[in-house]
Design a protein around this nucleic acid. Structure first.
Lengths: 205, 205
DNA sequence: ACATCATAATAGACCGGTCGTCTATAATGT
DNA sequence: ACATTATAGACGACCGGTCTATTATGATGT
């Protein structure tokens, strides 16, 4: 009985992987179903339409990506700025393993689907809002413990960091290189006040 | 009628607009050809394949986007930092007019096509490299005239600015709001050293 | 002027894949 | 026995990119 659900989950799992690799429009239902060994007709028993399925795929990605952000940024056992560092170091390792393919599934779907489906657009916007919220909370902790300037605009800075990260992932995907992620890390931490592996130098206040 | 070429250009013009609005995969040749009033069969007289056509579409976008960057950032009549400000102000106005639809055509195609076509990927990477180069040159001018720290890593900073900008456009597209672009401008100029919120100029437009 | 010929351009057939629907069947639980 | 849950896959209508055959066009040689 629980296996009934697992079949549905399998469609989502396989579909998410395929959509992450090829994109939403370039991925056909047939291919997903073939790989999941699920007959065509069953799809419309589990999902109302491809768009409906897309919403669930976004939920799936949101829980994975959001989970990574949360696990790192809410880890109370290390200092807030350090958490940020570890987070982006983690992503760098992950994407190196993937040979820079795929990129951010949320970013990919955002650019591909925002103008095509209002349903998916609002869903994606909510996911992004939450991720930025997680970063914001971490920065606020940094303000609280004195490692960041007391007048720091945590929400705006978190948003800016998210922008730079997404842009770096885009650049990484197209350049097939770690370099964009390196530049991102270096400048993000310089911006918020931490030097990375470099001689500290007066940044001229 | 030596506009044999103009017919070809018309296909590119119409195709670029459609691909900018809907994406590469979601745009069919048929729709492009219908709107350009060119029969289906003629397409393969002008272009070898859809991918070949894609390369030309990227060239088209590159000349438009690259042109905007160049026109602003190589304008010797105003100070380098001011050029950057005007550039992003210009984009903000443009996207407001478009109601935040479309986003950056280069960014869109990068995420959609980088893993699907090596041909398009390298082309897109080159376009991005050139844009970052234009920003780099502008920053170097700023270093030269003393408005930026002498030890500024111009190339890395330019790259970082590009990342943040692309990320902001992504966020703008999905949130359908100017706010991401506002946050981007505020933090970018805070990072490179210009204080915002202080009346420093009249909106010269 | 006329026939010839290469090229420019068009027309539409072609096959395969798309999403989505439909009916038929099998497993399950009460 | 029977409704419910799930599987099965054919089918339709349509649209995708590509190809081959055909027709305009225009230059050339006599």
């Amino acid at each position: 009985m629980q296996q009934g659900t697992s079949k549905r989950d399998e469609i989502i799992r396989v579909g998410a992987a395929l959509i992450h690799a090829r994109g939403y429009n370039a991925t056909g239902l047939q291919e997903i179903l073939d790989r999941a060994s699920v007959p065509k007709g069953s799809f419309y028993f589990y999902f109302r339409s491809k768009e409906e399925f897309g919403v669930e795929i976004i939920d799936h990605f949101a829980s994975i990506v959001g989970g990574i952000f949360s696990r790192h940024l809410r880890n109370g056992s290390i200092a807030p700025l350090r958490r940020l560092e570890e987070l982006f170091r983690f992503f760098e390792g992950y994407y190196k393993k993937q040979e820079f393919a795929g990129g951010c599934p949320i970013g990919n779907l955002s650019l591909e689907m925002a103008d095509a489906s209002e349903r998916l657009r609002t869903k994606l916007a909510a996911v992004i809002r939450e991720i930025i919220g997680t970063i914001t909370a971490c920065l606020q902790e940094g303000v609280g413990d004195g490692s960041l300037r007391p007048d720091l605009d945590a929400a705006g800075t978190a948003e800016f960091i998210f922008h730079a990260f997404e842009g770096a992932l885009l650049h990484m995907k197209v350049a097939k290189s770690v370099e964009p992620l390196r530049a991102f890390r270096k400048h993000v931490f310089r911006y918020i006040g931490r030097r990375e592996g470099e001689p500290q130098q007066q940044g001229g206040s």
